[in-house]
Simulated scan of single mutants.
Amino acid sequence: MDSDTTNSEDNVTIVDFLNSSDDDEEANIFVQLLMSLTNRLNRQPRHNSALTGREYALEQLYGHPENMFEICCMHRDTFEAIVRLIQDRNLLPSLSISTEESLMMFLRTIALSDRNREIQDRFVHSGETVHRYFVNVLTALSALAPDVIKPPNMNIVPPKIRYNPKY
């Protein structure tokens, strides 16, 4: 019973101290600063994966082919061909994230409809970095589109359609 009384008395004195007059404003600020520092010391990092984003991308790229296809909806040889095209034309700034990692973040976002937060957690990058590289890859792929996507010749009717009475 004594400990309850002492504990409640301590709480009352702390509350009284925090609710004190303007003369004790400096003491209030000091207590708030100490509480803030204590909270900061007890924080855990959000992005604490064992693999970095690059390591994860390489693990998926050179791991089981089905994993690669499930994440990117693309086979490894196609993925590597796109990476080579982007690198050959210097379409992505090579700052701190590799072309493979950037493209995998982009494809995972598009293929799996992952949100920015999910990409941050998986690739261990900030939301701003994920967004910046998403835009960079989108711009690079848009620059490749005229050379890679060839529309069919609309003046020629394929024989399969021409000779089929259904059409």
Results as ranks from 00 to 15, higher is better:
L34Y: 14
R89I: 01
E80S: 06
E118Y: 06
S113P: 08
L107E: 03
T52V: 06
V135H: 09
I110T: 08
T52P: 04
L34W: 14
H47L: 14
G127W: 05
R122V: 11
S36A: 15
L138A: 08
R84V: 12
T139C: 11
C73K: 15
D147Q: 13
V31Y: 07
H125Q: 03
S49A: 10
E66C: 12
N90A: 07
E26Q: 07
Q120R: 13
R117I: 11
A111N: 03
S102K: 14
L95S: 02
V83H: 00
F30R: 11
P151S: 07
S36M: 15
R132S: 10
T78R: 14
I71H: 10
L138Q: 08
L103Y: 03
S20N: 08
I149S: 02
Y62K: 09
S102V: 10
L34E: 15
S142D: 06
S36Y: 15
S126N: 13
L33E: 11
R54Y: 12
V130R: 00
L95W: 03
M35I: 14
I97Q: 08
F30L: 13
R115F: 08
I119D: 01
M35V: 12
S49D: 13
F79S: 02
R46C: 11
M68G: 04
P146D: 10
F106R: 03
E70M: 11
E25F: 00
S36N: 15
Y133T: 03
L112F: 05
D114F: 05
L141S: 05
S102A: 15
H131S: 15
D24W: 08
T129N: 05
V130G: 01
P151L: 11
T99E: 06
S102E: 13
V135S: 07
N136G: 04
E26Y: 07
T38A: 15
E80Y: 02
D147L: 09
M74T: 07
I71E: 07
Y133F: 05
G63F: 04
M68Q: 04
M35L: 12
Q87H: 09
I97S: 04
M74K: 06
I110A: 07
A57D: 06
A140F: 00
E25Q: 02
L92V: 03
H64P: 02
D147T: 13
T38C: 14
G63K: 06
E26N: 08
A143M: 11
S142V: 03
S142I: 05
I71Q: 09
L85M: 02
S98E: 07
M104Y: 01
T52F: 08
Q87E: 12
T52L: 07
H64M: 04
Q32D: 10
R84I: 11
N42T: 12
R117E: 11
E118S: 14
L95K: 03
L144Y: 00
Q87Y: 06
A140E: 00
D77F: 14
L37W: 11
H64I: 04
T78V: 13
Y133P: 01
I97Y: 08
F123P: 00
V83E: 01
N116P: 02
D77R: 15
Y62E: 09
E118M: 09
E101Y: 09
V83S: 01
L141R: 05
V135F: 07
E100R: 04
D88C: 03
L91A: 00
R43N: 10
E55V: 04
R40L: 10
L33H: 08
H75C: 10
L91N: 01
E66S: 14
